[in-house]
Design a protein around this nucleic acid. Structure first.
Lengths: 231, 231
DNA sequence: CTAGCTGCTATTCAATTGGATAACCAAATT
DNA sequence: AATTTGGTTATCCAATTGAATAGCAGCTAG
């Protein structure tokens, strides 16, 4: 990867932000954040050096202290960005409201698998942090993960109450579903070496979403599938 | 955690190894390996310092160079130990041979989930390494992961050919199953903070295995379960 | 047009790290 | 008993790291 910033970034005043310097500042901040996401995801909090992140963004490493106080602040800002983007990109389309709960869940799975494929950094960062049991993990759980989780829980409980889903433990449901969606993209490198397969392809992504739905959410389709073995 | 080695470890000659020094040496090596597994799992390759590992084992850090040449050698020795133990502990009991393929697979799932619960270091080490795309990953894939994977593949293909399982992509099957089994234990810290649940309990482990089987391998049980919603 | 604020850079510092070397000393060999 | 071997320790070294500080340059306000 090459450095991401050209010396002559001269944005004039196209945004409504008015002031040239504050606009420039916001841009720089966003750039550092982007690079921090990639580097944190690839090397973990300890493995990522602020110098690498700065170098990758093409800025002086002192700037990180200026914008984010310290490495911890940078990490939290990056994770905050990550979850905000998640919520934006995972918003259900309005027409989903008319669907039955199980169909809504399938739609949610498709969106989530595509999100995982598009942004593998998310799972990579959070898994590494979760393994380490840091203050950062507690912060992220309280602030983002647990609230998001409540939603998944409600979704699951509704399926069970409607009698369209087996009543397994909530936490098992949660980890089975999310891990099934994330893992292939989180472990894209491994998969590359095992299967020689690049996960970038839309076909692979969509087929994976459908596989999850077939195995975990679609009784009828599944029974049909297993009754008609290939050739 | 405290240091793991007492100064007065005096093993006499109880093993058949004969020579006192070589026996002592093997013990020290094994001790370092154990500690390396834990520290590598918790902090990743870069985050783990050989000094921490040595300190944790209660030995001088120079010893690691003597026994394993360098940090890379230590990591590979630890991973080799890890996979050898996996193969030992995952061996199918002889009576499994009489079962139908689907039942064999369920038995395999139960064994694997218990293994993941007993040794969460395994998934933790390998996931972190896979995220980073290192030489070590390529080494481990070629030497351990890919061969193990071939077996899972064969198991899956047999189920499909017998018409008892839907014909999804092999790599999707692989990542869905293994991730479903590993993730809860790999992410035990996160789960602790979200659910206040300790994964150490056998009940949680066995229930998770059964949940996976219900969702992914047991059509009849699943249909029965969804037909009788709780109260 | 000028003064000063501010986004940014250059440099320094102490701590930690992987690795290398030499000395040590108990066990093994003679 | 004397000597060699080899597992272990103590120390040193260069590189990297997070953080801190001082200073610069150009936009902005007056």
């Amino acid at each position: 990867m090459t450095t991401a910033r050209s010396k002559s970034g001269n944005p004039k005043r196209d945004g409504k932000a008015g002031n040239l310097r504050t606009e420039q500042k916001a841009q720089t901040r966003a750039l550092i954040l982007q690079c921090a996401l990639e580097v944190f995801a690839e090397r973990g909090f300890d493995g990522a050096s602020v110098r690498d992140i700065a170098g990758f963004a093409g800025v002086n490493h002192g700037l990180i202290r200026y914008h984010f106080a310290d490495k911890d602040g940078l990490w939290k800002a990056a994770v905050e960005f990550l979850f905000n983007r998640l919520h934006e990109e995972m918003a259900a389309p309005p027409e989903d409201a008319k669907l039955a709960p199980l169909e809504q869940t399938k739609s949610w799975i498709r969106r989530y698998v595509r999100y995982c494929a598009r942004h593998p950094e998310h799972a990579r960062i959070m898994v590494q942090e979760s393994i380490r049991d840091s203050d950062r993990l507690r912060w992220a759980v309280k602030r983002f993960i647990k609230p998001d989780n409540e939603e998944t829980r409600r979704r699951f409980r509704r399926l069970v109450e409607e009698g369209v889903y087996p009543d397994i433990p909530e936490h098992s449901f949660n980890y089975i579903i999310t891990a099934a969606a994330q893992s292939m993209f989180m472990l894209a490198n491994e998969m590359k070496y095992i299967y020689g397969l690049d996960v970038a392809s839309d076909d692979v992504v969509d087929a994976h979403a459908e596989a999850i739905i077939t195995l975990l959410f679609d009784h009828r389709a599944r029974r049909a599938a297993v009754r008609r073995p290939k050739s």
